[in-house]
């Protein structure tokens, strides 16, 4: 479990805090998405979780251990992949990297070797274990970085933009792996990403930050449901539509977007279309995706969770 209480970080003489009174609970075994535009404070928060930055105020507990006061125990609770850095040594092989990072976490050599074998096999890197990581593709390097974060089998994994710059196949592998870690092994995963489809697919719960503050912290389904536009419908028809509708025609199919004050009005709209000779293909209530929600949250000046 990750517990963050009133976490604040002010850099030097900066007027505005980079992270401002953020409080969060990430339940054990869940995948938690930490979203926000550039400069929102996500990476600063991750670095405070990882003990790399000292908070100006507030507390962080990983697996029940206070990062500031119980640092050695807290450091044993997590592995991390940080954004914008190599994370692993390019002049060492995948095997040597995992052995190093495992022992750095305080594990015995034999235990690390066993775990490294499992991880490299699971990631399809076993045959390349003795090759230098510098010669790997970006996707393979990221796999090694994630394996290094998991080498000590920590209960918590912090992933800062884990799929950034990866191709479709590598992204799929990383996503599958995150799901497996959480669902099957009970690992708590906190991930930041700008790829909202990734967050929507993986995360049980999502928090959105803006200008250092949390503007939402809800289970993904609830967050999406909260933004469902109950009064907006999308109707697809074949043929022409009467004047007065917002319509887009592509390859013979016309899509109409209508807003209604009462669901019963939808029947009237369909009747008008039918009377005009249009053939109904589909009718759906508009479901927002995480991107819509995210944009709404970061663009609305006073939206709060």
């Amino acid at each position: 479990m990750i517990e963050i209480d009133a976490l604040t970080k002010v850099y030097g003489q900066a007027q505005a805090p980079a992270v401002d009174e953020v409080s969060l609970r990430v339940p054990a075994g869940s995948v938690f998405g930490f979203l926000g535009p550039n400069g929102a404070g996500k990476t600063t928060t991750i670095k405070m979780l990882a003990g790399l930055l000292t908070p100006t105020s507030g507390e962080v507990r990983l697996g029940g251990f206070d990062v500031a006061r119980q640092r050695p125990a807290a450091m044993a609770q997590f592995g991390a992949v940080l954004e914008g850095s190599r994370n692993v040594y390019w002049s060492l092989s995948a095997w040597q990297n995992l052995m190093y990072f495992g022992r750095l976490k305080g594990l015995r050599k034999a235990r690390v070797a066993e775990r490294a074998r499992d991880l490299l096999t699971g990631l399809g890197l076993w045959d390349r274990r003795d090759d230098k990581v510098g010669g790997f593709s970006r996707g393979m390097q990221q796999k090694v970085a994630i394996a290094a974060a998991l080498i000590a089998d920590p209960p918590i994994v912090l992933l800062d933009e884990p799929t950034l710059g990866l191709d479709v196949e590598a992204t799929r592998t990383v996503k599958n792996w995150i799901t497996e870690q959480s669902r099957e092994l009970g690992t708590t995963v906190l991930l930041t990403t700008h790829q909202l489809d990734v967050a929507q697919e993986l995360c049980d719960r999502v928090a959105v930050m803006r200008r250092g503050r949390l503007v939402a912290d809800l289970p993904t389904r609830e967050l999406l449901a909260g933004f469902r536009e109950r009064d907006r419908y999308e109707i697809r028809v074949e043929g022409t539509v009467p004047p007065g509708f917002e319509a887009v025609t592509r390859e013979g199919v016309t899509t109409i977007s209508v807003r209604v004050s009462d669901p019963g009005e939808v029947y009237e709209v369909v009747a008008r279309l039918r009377a005009h000779g249009a053939v109904l293909e589909s009718l759906t209530q508009v479901q927002p995706d995480l991107e819509d929600v995210f944009l709404a949250l970061v663009n609305e000046p006073s939206h709060a969770a």
């Binding site: 990882a50 003990g51 790399l52 640092r71 050695p72 125990a73 450091m75 044993a76 997590f78 592995g79 991390a80 940080l82 914008g84 850095s85 190599r86 994370n87 692993v88 040594y89 390019w90 990072f101 750095l104 976490k105 305080g106 290094a148």
Partner: peptide, 18 residues
């Protein structure tokens, strides 16, 4: 520069040991 220094700090050992 590369980022491995930050990774090496996330150890239960005291910072002077690495």
């Amino acid at each position: 520069r590369a980022g491995t220094f930050a990774q090496a700090q996330m150890t239960p050992a005291p910072p002077w040991l690495p």
